[in-house]
Write a protein that binds this DNA or RNA. Structure first.
Lengths: 226, 226, 226, 226
DNA sequence: TATGAATGAGTCTTCATTCAT
DNA sequence: CATGAATGAAGACTCATTCAT
């Protein structure tokens, strides 16, 4: 029953937001009375603790589990992270909305609780890795290494967090998981690639990094529709 | 006073989330009593309406104002959108958190209200544009045109929505606006660039671009960007 | 176990008051679950019944056991009652607080239950005794015989009921049992003594007994009063 | 309305005990909703604060207001204190039960709050006074000066705290205010008197000045003994 | 405009009580 | 005997909302 309640809570939190979810709703979703939720979790606060520790933290840990190999090259690492994010969210569809609203976002109700459990070390190692690769010339030097991970997170999680309701609106693009995966994969691969101009000259010139890479925009052939 | 209340409401909504913000808090922030908020807005619901119509919708409109030129090439268009997003959020720092939590995210309290006001037509035109450019070979064909705009939004807004608290945690990267702008600009520029390989050979190789990324992730090591 | 629960209940009732003591607290103090308390006592009400009948009533009975000898003179009787009160409260330290709060005091939760078990007859006999002694001139005639017993109770029980916390406050006198016994004994002995003046003249005059003491408080004799 | 609520609260607290009195009961007694009590006092805790500060503390202060005269002799002082106690409780009949149950008694809900406001200095001065008088031979040396004040309190307050319900029980003595005043006055006067034996030898000086207002103590009619 | 007083509905939380095991 | 699971009935507290002034 405890697991059941935790599952219902997590799902409702993801669907409606934590602040908008009452203990009674959670109980009703599990088919019991509100008193039961207190029986198992004592507290609203402790329920949130449990959600963080027993649900979210585990998912986060899984995402980073692969990134421990120090040897990996950043391109592979990034693709691996993306893959893991998709894996996790496939099994835990409540993760993106919860993550976005209650952890990443300002004033999120799980923020403080989660800060202690963030994989800071791994994140820092990731940043170092990418930075090294940039200096070696194997990763686009125009990217800001410390911001790259958040970009990955944003690219994957935000679309997934919108899925349900978004889909129902005519005119808006369906966020289909496979399409999204292809899209994000390609987007990141392209973004990390060293620009042609820079590739040759080890990017000393760095001419105008902000200048849109107008040169590479040469269209190849026609029927390349995705 | 009405404007003042609207401003306070918007800021508090962004900081704490709508569900966690009471009428009394808004009133107190403006230095009046809760009754005044009702005097001007009658209703909590109507206050939300006002926030959407008089604050958010205008910001959104501004972002898209540039995209109306049908002729623009997607690269420039995207950079223009990014620029506008940064402009808007500079003046309206409450936009990213509000947008993320209450509009984009599942169960956001402003979602329904905002759906009617989304620039769907412009979005669709943008998608068509990008699609055309992809077929013409001027934009990376591996991207999913319908998902591109959400990616832009995610890349810009999510980091901005986290800024305040993120900064306070040691070990996590500061999200500095200028760095972020450079990062996102470079990231999107690189992502939209047509891959060199594909550029030459019409990207027939694409045979397995959809193949789960894990396997193909092995990069050729050497001169990455051919 | 039943005894054990009864003991825990009595002690907690004395420490926190009945209204503030939950069944679960009692159970926890005895190392069992709340369900056990119901197993043995069925009811909160019946638990209170048990406390009254099996704990308090017995203590009360013991106090009066000595007073049965009709022949005793009031001075000895009073000292005997005091002695018994000290005896009983030595063994049952929970008695004073419980008695004070839940029986003597207005709205006490054991009041109704206890009323039936009060040693009314003995009390009345005590009053008659004292009254007779007053008429005989062996007991201070200014005392109100019907109120004397309550005075005794108050003098002994109230200080004992305060002991624990009182002691912890600097500046307040410690209520030490032996000192208190001496004090109360001396106080009551002195109070019952027939005033020297009155002793001789059998006090006839009678001026105005109800006259508020404030005015007559000026002592006649010289020196002492400043 | 605030005063009204405070009055209702105080009375109910005295009648039923604090723990047994709900916010709704207080509100109902004042003819409003429970929300009003929170409107004025925010909190149960703060309501208790208000009761202590705005009701009880003032009464206590009044009782001690007279005792400030350092010169007074203990006999007069004690009678003055008794007089003040009766005055105060005449106007504030809720004081005795509240004092007994919630302040004096172990685990009383106002204890901590009241400890800071106890007239400790005055109490200590009182103890010093009495002690000095005992050494001078004008006050019964067998009494424990530090315990005397509590005895006074007990003698007056405990019977008053029982009044209402006690009266309704057949067989128990009515606690009539005037009778009680006479009783306590006489009891304390007698108790403080220096024992005749001691008067002659030990402390000669005092001769018989200790005999308190012996003159006025003459009872009116004879067979008034109940 | 602006406020203070007042309220009803709802939320969290506690607790006595029950019951199958 | 003893427990864990479960509940209904409160009780404290919050909050949007109303209204007379």
């Amino acid at each position: 029953m405890r697991e059941r309640l935790l599952a219902c809570a997590t799902q409702l939190f993801a669907e409606q937001g934590i602040a908008a979810t009452t203990m009674a709703q959670i109980a009703a979703a599990a088919g019991v009375t509100a008193a039961m939720v207190h029986y198992y979790f004592t507290n609203r606060e402790k329920l949130l603790d449990a959600v963080v520790e027993e649900r979210i933290a585990r998912s986060i840990a899984y995402v980073w589990a692969s990134a421990d190999s120090d040897a990996a090259d950043p391109h592979a690492l990034v693709q691996e992270l993306v893959a893991r994010l998709f894996e996790v969210t496939e099994r835990q569809p409540w993760l993106p909305p919860l993550w976005l609203r209650e952890i990443v976002n300002e004033g999120g109700l799980l923020r403080e609780r989660m800060l202690k459990r963030l994989p800071i070390e791994q994140l820092q190692r990731f940043v170092v890795h990418v930075g090294a690769a940039q200096r070696e010339g194997t990763v686009n030097p125009d990217l800001e290494a410390p911001l790259l991970f958040m970009s990955i997170l944003a690219l994957v999680m935000l679309p997934l967090a919108t899925s349900k309701l978004w889909q129902s609106t005519r005119g808006l693009p369906r966020v289909e998981r496979n399409a999204l995966r292809r899209h994000v994969t390609a987007l990141l691969a392209g973004a990390m690639r060293v620009p042609a101009a820079a590739a040759g000259e080890t990017r000393d010139a760095s001419a105008a990094p902000e200048s849109p890479p107008a040169q590479t925009r040469k269209r190849p052939t026609s029927g390349s529709a995705p």
